[in-house]
Design a protein around this nucleic acid. Structure first.
Lengths: 186, 186
DNA sequence: TTGCGCGGAGAACGATCGTTCTCTACGATA
DNA sequence: TATCGTAGAGAACGATCGTTCTCCGCGCAA
């Protein structure tokens, strides 16, 4: 038998991919079981309910997002470049064939009305992103009100790219971000 | 018996409110029937399926959105003010207690993977908004690439306000829009 | 070797969904 | 007035969902 941590990871990874591709409510627990290769009984011994699994998936996505953002920032040398790296990161993501929008925004639209736990997990991730941007803005020495403006650009790029189905929004948001940064530093 | 147009409107209005408040998939056709006071048989004679009703609700929302935007623009005298009126319109909307984010974004996150018709209706509305902004930018005499930047700000403000649960994003996006406009006109 | 406990597979359960069907009542027409 | 068509109310249907339960087989202790 596989150990608990491995089973947990298999379930979360499988659920993440299914939820992201088809939507959360469209995926039954049977489909998660088949994709993960872990029995329903085991799944329910690891997660008390589907809601709890959804929250675990969102936390897993948060880790991936954070790691991707950090990797993109590593390639930058200045604070300004680290901010713009966010939009390069988005650009690369939007071009992936599997891109279907921000999983947090999608899940929020789907379940925030019916699950406080899910809404809370999404809010947490977005608030962490806001804090990340605020840190970069502070390192740049720009006024703090620049940070939410840049975060709004990033959010808007994600929904625009998802709905329009083209990656242009990343580049457009990047240009806007440069303009906002320059104006804030003047 | 009430005439067809009236029945249609009652169903669409009731469905719109229910879908927006609780999410589309969380609302059964029975609930629509009860809220609208129109029998299931009648509903299915007006709409071939729930999917078709969803699309009708999205078109109804589009009309409301367009009318609200037009009313906000009426209060402005210059092209620049008409653009900024978008964000004032968002601000007032975000402060409504019933605000639960953009219905188009929410519905897209919920159903775009399972219904092409729904995804198409959402894409149509967003594309119309982009065209509206592009028209204002052209009237302003600013370079056309300003338009998608402003649209991204508006989209980002909507998701940010919905998830964070506070209306600040409208004001922040408005300030950013002013900066972008000024930079584009220089 | 013989019990025993635990995990896997998936059947079963109760609820709910979208959609259709049945039955009844009423209003218009000849 | 008698008859027919139609609409309303809601039961019914088949599918599917989240969750639990049953049964079977395998690995380990004495």
């Amino acid at each position: 038998m596989i150990d608990e941590a491995t089973a947990r990871e298999k379930v979360v990874r499988a659920a993440d991919e299914l939820f992201y591709t088809r939507g959360v409510q469209a995926v039954g627990m049977d489909a998660v079981r088949s994709a993960a290769g872990v029995s329903l009984k085991r799944i329910y011994s690891l997660f008390a309910s589907k809601d709890e699994l959804i929250v675990a998936v969102l936390r897993y996505r948060t880790e991936i997002w954070d790691a991707g953002l950090a990797a993109a920032a590593l390639r930058a040398t200045t604070a300004r470049e680290r901010i713009l790296a966010i939009f390069d990161f988005l650009d690369a993501w939007f071009r992936e064939p599997e891109f279907r929008g921000c999983a947090f925004i999608n899940t929020h639209g789907e379940l925030s009305a019916s699950s406080d736990a899910v809404a809370g997990a999404v809010r947490e991730q977005k608030s962490a992103f806001q804090a990340y941007v605020a840190g970069l803005v502070e390192a740049l020495g720009a006024p703090p009100q620049l940070a939410p403006q840049l975060a709004i650009l990033a959010e808007g790029a994600q929904t625009t790219a998802a709905i329009a189905g083209v990656p242009d929004a990343a580049r457009q948001a990047r240009v806007a971000a440069e303009t906002l940064i320059d104006a804030a530093m003047r």
